[in-house]
């Protein structure tokens, strides 16, 4: 069994988006992503979105439902009724991070509500972590709020931030109080790129402290939706350089899918292990 190809799916139900990845593995280290999708929730029922995105990803992969050996959920996906098993977010981001960036030995997972830095070994075993506290300060949700206040899209903020020439220091990264801060900056005539860069720098400082606190060294992969924000990633790289840090911050075009990819890969691992024990679960993929 361990040598046979297997197709598995990972569903990462986040606070603001659902991500699905369909993966093929051969049990000997060969891993290939067949499809991956990310869909924002937009006030819809998370479980309905999860089902719909799963169907789309499955169709895109070309795999039939009966071919799916394990449907693994992560994040808030415990409620997905066609799951085979569920993995905790930290576990799946480590595995997905390793798939996307094999040199990575740490991940900074920036979610809509929380951010965590985790250390891992070459097998994606989590060795330690640091996590933000209860509020959403400096998280993906905070960035979303900022784009609303500034009237720009999420896709625009990265390039705008890179164009800054005199970043304005942001006094607060509180998702609630930031509105006042930003309105003040706008009323003072600060250009949008400089506002965004200042915000990115504030966030980067916070993330860097998590990374350093966790004791990361070497390559650190940024995962989660904000990983696509080139301005934020640049600010994080600059923060690390300013601190003469032994880490190298990297991102990946598929970083947003890291949790879903990791879930699918761990699902394949479990499916093989269960099969070896003669404990294959019925109903896998039975959406």
């Amino acid at each position: 069994m361990s040598g046979a190809d297997m197709i598995t799916a990972g569903i990462d139900v986040g606070s603001s988006a659902v991500k699905v990845a369909v993966m093929r593995t051969d049990g000997r280290g060969g891993e290939e992503m067949l499809s991956g999708r990310c869909e924002r929730m937009r006030r819809r029922d998370a479980l309905e979105v999860a089902r719909a995105v799963f169907e789309e990803a499955l169709a895109e992969s070309g795999a039939g439902r009966g071919e799916i050996g394990y449907v693994a959920t992560t994040g808030e996906g415990e409620g997905v009724d066609f799951r085979t098993g569920h993995f905790y977010g930290m576990t799946t981001h480590a595995r997905g991070g390793l798939f996307l960036e094999p040199e990575a030995r740490a991940v900074i997972d920036i979610g809509a509500l929380h951010t965590r830095a985790l250390l891992m070994d070459g097998r994606a075993k989590v060795l330690g972590y640091r996590m933000t506290s209860q509020c959403a300060s400096g998280s993906g949700q905070f960035l979303e709020n900022i784009t609303r206040y500034l009237g720009v899209t999420l896709e625009e903020i990265g390039p705008l931030s890179l164009a800054a020439d005199d970043p304005e220091k942001c006094s607060s990264i509180c998702a609630v109080l930031a509105e006042t801060d930003v309105i003040n900056m706008v009323s003072r005539g600060i250009p949008v790129p400089n506002i965004l860069k200042g915000i990115h720098q504030s966030m980067a400082g916070r993330y860097y402290r998590l990374i350093a606190g966790a004791g990361a060294r070497g390559v650190v992969l940024v995962t989660g939706g904000p990983a696509a924000d080139v301005g934020l990633v640049r600010a994080l790289q600059e923060e690390a350089a300013a601190n003469r840090s032994p880490v190298e911050i990297r991102s990946h075009p598929r970083s947003v899918l890291a949790g879903a990819i990791g879930a699918a890969l761990w699902g394949a691992f479990r499916a093989r292990r269960l099969a070896e024990k003669g404990l294959a679960l019925s109903g896998a993929g039975g959406a």
Binding site: L47, E76, G79, D81, F82
Partner: peptide, 15 residues
Amino acid sequence: PGEGGCGSAAPAAAG
């Protein structure tokens, strides 16, 4: 447990 978490129980699992 880290520092994180303020939510109550997760939404009802479909199972």
